[in-house]
Design a binder for these strands. Sequence first.
DNA 1: GGGAAAAGATGCCGGGACGGCAAACTTTTC
DNA 2: GAAAAGTTTGCCGTCCCGGCATCTTTTCCC
Lengths: 202, 202
Amino acid sequence: MTAEKALTGLRERKKAQTRAALASAAMRLALERGVENVTADAIAEAADVSPRTFRNYFSGKEEAIVAELVDGMGYIADGLRARPTGEPLWESLRHALTFSAFLPPEQLEQLAVKVRMVMASRALLGSQLAIFERLGEQLTEIIAERTGTDARTDLYPRLTGVVAANALRLTVFMWLESKGESDLAELTADALARLRAGLPEP
Amino acid sequence: MTAEKALTGLRERKKAQTRAALASAAMRLALERGVENVTADAIAEAADVSPRTFRNYFSGKEEAIVAELVDGMGYIADGLRARPTGEPLWESLRHALTFSAFLPPEQLEQLAVKVRMVMASRALLGSQLAIFERLGEQLTEIIAERTGTDARTDLYPRLTGVVAANALRLTVFMWLESKGESDLAELTADALARLRAGLPEP
DNA sequence: GGGAAAAGATGCCGGGACGGCAAACTTTTC
DNA sequence: GAAAAGTTTGCCGTCCCGGCATCTTTTCCC
């Protein structure tokens, strides 16, 4: 249950391909023309499928546009899963959430362009929040597993997961606001440190 | 700039009335028929305005359905504003966010019915998240004011506001999941206490 | 008090979104 | 290799959404 799914069989592979093509086309068109000027039909055409098929994959253009970023969140979750079990949880979270420190600058800039577009679009606010909500759920699951707590009944893993995901969301937001004058990984690490310290008044 | 707006003039009053009528009708219909079976036109009809007018007030049925709850969040912000300035911030937050402890049980149950519907609806997920996002922004503003920090550049007030709002969201969610077997105010207070303590592993 | 001017409400309309259904295909299964 | 299972696509009805023009109501100001 990571970012990748088992791709057994031709059918599965084709579906994944189609989905990826649609998501990619949606993101590209949104960047080129602006979210408002993208239609579901245009995305379908760009991905060489019928408009009707588009609707079999995504419930709307918004979902398609952010699909790549949603999948990207999976890598953060994978990063947390990959941390050694003995490591203190806060350390693991810091490592996983400051992934940007290990990204080639060019790739980070590429990501920034997309995230900026999503975070700036009023129409995508719901989707944007949903992305991080999902990240929170994934973190919750991993945290519950690592700490031997129950995500269904225990406040701890859920609160920690939600708070960590939102800390990242906030620092990404502030990073974009600063227009490159701040370091995302540093900002995120700062936020996590403050959380670990109990959010003392400055 | 509280939950209430100055209602000078007949025009303002009528607008507020129309808006309230639409929001109320939207919520009622959503509860009666389920979110999926409510159309913008039906809401307009129930509120005795033209469908076109409905769209002048709300961008879609989702926004109308949650409008009452959005406004309700304003009262929580007002509650925080009303706390004495000398009080430690965590104390103030606890008081403001555990408002449910001071609500008549009947009124709390009435609220629960609405919140349950909103939180259970897939179609309202985005709106639901946006409600709490807005609460986070309001808390941020108040926290910045109280602590003399700058919400534009300082991580502290924003992080605290966002985290507090999401703590409430999570505890409301868990409270609804428990089907009345837990106390919302206690749950929320517990979450805030954990945050203040730096989210230690249990 | 009365007649603009400003702000709202409404109707009309066209481009899109959404999803059920059935027919045509493709991959899997045996 | 056929039947079974799963996908793609077209068709279509319903609803969403917002611009524009018009008619009404409220406000403003002499």
